[in-house]
Structures are given as structure tokens and as C-alpha cells.
């Protein structure tokens, strides 16, 4: 069984977002780049499955759509435990563009399970995984919070409102994963980091795909009004404010 994990390169989630002077772009100077948190959980589970079932999981590959600058993040994925990597050499446009690049790159390769994080922490698009499945003509399962492949049997849970469902699917398929697939991301070991330097990283040239959307402008949220502080000895005032001012209780 071959597992492919799609990873996106995003600013660290603690990044304070600033606009460039003209308001037409986000100022990314000095930003720390990381593997998108959900993709990192997907990768962590994929590597875990390979360690747990070496006879079942033959290989874990990561794929990224990004320019040369995203390579440190791809190497980090190799350090965490992916066996090899593909980088599609282009600046990612919208979800349709990214899914199209991924589909073009892997359509003739026999991956059994394709893992995508449910969203990226930068554009919050929540779309690449399901688009990719549709483009490849294979099924997708969304909100996957559990995946196991013991003895080659695929066990999948997806989260629904107030609970979860066990789902079965034909192979190959795309699992769109969320928290729960792994709890904590796997940390790269020193040995992993050393090994990552020599693991294969193929660079593919992009396919000719046009994005269907583009960003016209950016805006920051309005500053929130100052917090009204209430004395801990006077909780009655809080209740009064919630009841009469905010009218929420």
C-alpha cells in the first residue's frame, strides 16, 4: 500500500498578520514557515501506520505545490518520516489550481490512500482534498478522525455532528483529515533530519491550469472595543451587563 500526503507551506499559526503598505498583499517578511497543522497530523499518522504495519504500508510520499522557497518544509516532512517527496514547482493559486496541479502530477501513479488536511491555516479554503478526488474520479471521505490499515483492511471514521460514523470505501481514495487522525504531530529526530538530506525529492514542472478565483484586496478586522473589567467581588454587575446591556441572558 502506498500513501501520499499532500502538504501545504503556511505561516506559523502564531504569526501576527500585517498588510503590505498598499493593502494588496499580506506582509510575509520575517514569517516562520511550517507544514500546515492538519497536513502535519496527516503525515504523522501516515508515518505511524508505516512503522506499525511495515508489511502493509510500503511507502509514504509527500507532495507540495510550491516554489523553491517551500523546500525546507518539504525536507521537514522527510525528516518526520516520509520516504520521498515531490514538489510541483509553481506558486500556489486558488484551491482549484492546487488540486489541478496535484491531480496532473499523480494521475498515473498508483497511490492507494491520499491524505489531505481538512483546511490550510492561511486561506482556510477547505477544498483541495475533495477537488482532487473529483478530478481523479475517485471517492473522498471528509472529516476523517481515524484511519487504520491493520492487515491491509482500511478502517475509517469520519466525524459528524455529535458523533462519528464508520465508513467504508473503495481504493484508491482521498481521506480529508482533521484533528483526531493524530493528536500530536510527530517530531523529527536528529537521525530523521540527517536522513532527510539524502531522501529523494523530485521536482515536477507545473501543468497549465488557470485559477478560477483571485484575491482583489485584503483587510484586517476592526480593533475590538476595550474589555469591560468587572470586580471579582461584584459578579452581580457582570450578570446585570449580560442581562441588560448585551441582552444575551
Amino acid at each position: 500500500m502506498k500513501i501520499l500526503v499532500c502538504i501545504s507551506n503556511v505561516p506559523d499559526t502564531t504569526t501576527k498578520i500585517r498588510l503590505a503598505a498598499d493593502g494588496q498583499s499580506i506582509d510575509l517578511a520575517g514569517v516562520q514557515w511550517i507544514i500546515n497543522p492538519w497536513d502535519e497530523l496527516a503525515l504523522s499518522r501516515a508515518v505511524e501506520l508505516k512503522e506499525k504495519y511495515p508489511a502493509v504500508v510500503e511507502k509514504v510520499t509527500v507532495i507540495n505545490v510550491g516554489s523553491k522557497e517551500t523546500e525546507p518544509v518539504v525536507r521537514k516532512a522527510l525528516a518526520i518520516g516520509a520516504d520521498d517527496a515531490i514538489r510541483i514547482n509553481t506558486v500556489p493559486g486558488d484551491a482549484y489550481f492546487v488540486a489541478g496541479q496535484l491531480a496532473a502530477a499523480i494521475k498515473d501513479q498508483a497511490y492507494d490512500i491520499i491524505l489531505c488536511g481538512i483546511e490550510s491555516s492561511d486561506n482556510n479554503g477547505c477544498a483541495v482534498g475533495a477537488m482532487l478526488a473529483e478530478m481523479l474520479g475517485i471517492p473522498s471521505v471528509s472529516s476523517v478522525s481515524f484511519l487504520d490499515v491493520a492487515e491491509g483492511n482500511i478502517c475509517l471514521n469520519r466525524e459528524i455532528d455529535g458523533g462519528y460514523e464508520k465508513v467504508q470505501t473503495s481504493v484508491p481514495f482521498v481521506a480529508i483529515v482533521q484533528k483526531g487522525i493524530a493528536i500530536e504531530p510527530k517530531i523529527a529526530t536528529v537521525r530523521g533530519i540527517m536522513a532527510a538530506r539524502t531522501k529523494p525529492l523530485q521536482v515536477f514542472e507545473p501543468a497549465g491550469i488557470d485559477a478560477l478565483t483571485e484575491v482583489a484586496a485584503y483587510e484586517l478586522p476592526e480593533a475590538k472595543a476595550k474589555c469591560k473589567m468587572i470586580d471579582a467581588e461584584n459578579i452581580g454587575e457582570l450578570v446585570d451587563l449580560l442581562h441588560n446591556e448585551a441582552k444575551v441572558i
Binding site: T13, I17, S121, N124
Partner: peptide
């Protein structure tokens, strides 16, 4: 975008 830390006007 950025989980509410900014907004984008998308065409």
C-alpha cells in the same frame, strides 16, 4: 483568512 486574523476580497 488566517482563521479570522484577516479578510480577503476574492473575485
Amino acid at each position: 483568512i488566517y482563521t479570522g486574523k484577516a479578510f480577503a476580497y476574492v473575485t
